[in-house]
Design a protein around this nucleic acid. Sequence first.
DNA 1: CTAGTTGCAAAGAGTTTGCATGGCG
DNA 2: CGCCATGCAAACTCTTTGCAACTAG
Lengths: 137, 137
Amino acid sequence: MQKYKTRQRRVLLDYLAAHADEELSARQIESALREFDISLSAVYRNLSALESEGKVRRVSKSGSREVYYQYTDCMSCKDCLHLSCEKCGKTYHMNIPGMEMLIENLASSDEFAIDRKNTVLYGVCKSCQKEDKEKVS
Amino acid sequence: MQKYKTRQRRVLLDYLAAHADEELSARQIESALREFDISLSAVYRNLSALESEGKVRRVSKSGSREVYYQYTDCMSCKDCLHLSCEKCGKTYHMNIPGMEMLIENLASSDEFAIDRKNTVLYGVCKSCQKEDKEKVS
DNA sequence: CTAGTTGCAAAGAGTTTGCATGGCG
DNA sequence: CGCCATGCAAACTCTTTGCAACTAG
């Protein structure tokens, strides 16, 4: 798989990597890349390939029929948990000292081996919390 | 919404509650409840209602076009994180002393307010790890 | 030149919706 | 008895697939 480096492949990967903090639908990607002439099917086919290579993560958002994709193969994403904001949709890296230990403990006690690549903690990020407070007041 | 207590509604809720440790597709639910005569559309409509009431969580599994639903309104699920096994699909409650503290810290430092209801940690559970090891040897 | 990829359009699958009927309160 | 919910089937939308044309190596 992925034997040739086609123009479409390159453009898609570049775009995904540049938007690794967002969850994107196939249609969104195709629109964003319209100037580069990539067909929807090429987008779908490449996303599927990337998913089975483990370079892309698939999620469904509540209230939408579409499936969203996110690039997770960047260096800084390796072995690190993610936080995803339910309001703005942005993804953040989780840099908490205790977390690593916790996961290690879970794993070493053989209880549960966390799959960091597919695990995302959902919630509301700092700046969106601020907005909410302003609205209320 | 949800003004009448219909037979279908009751059967569906009972079934969901009894399988709160699984992620189920609409079709699976309809099949399991075939003897009770519930139409697929009733399943879909009620699941949607339950989702917007926050009693049901929606997830997409990689490699499947279907959407899966899980009942999350049971008492023991409140305010507790979940672990979901990628092999067997079962959901476990996360009972780790350190975890609570960690989430509290995250919240109190205003960094990120975790949404426990929609957050699921993925990985491989104890018994599935054991199976894997046996296969290899 | 050969085999992997793309685009297009058609097929497929899951989900949603309109409308007449049925049932809860 | 009035209004909400159900069932059925048609409509929709997102995704996949077949096939001929194209292109990277």
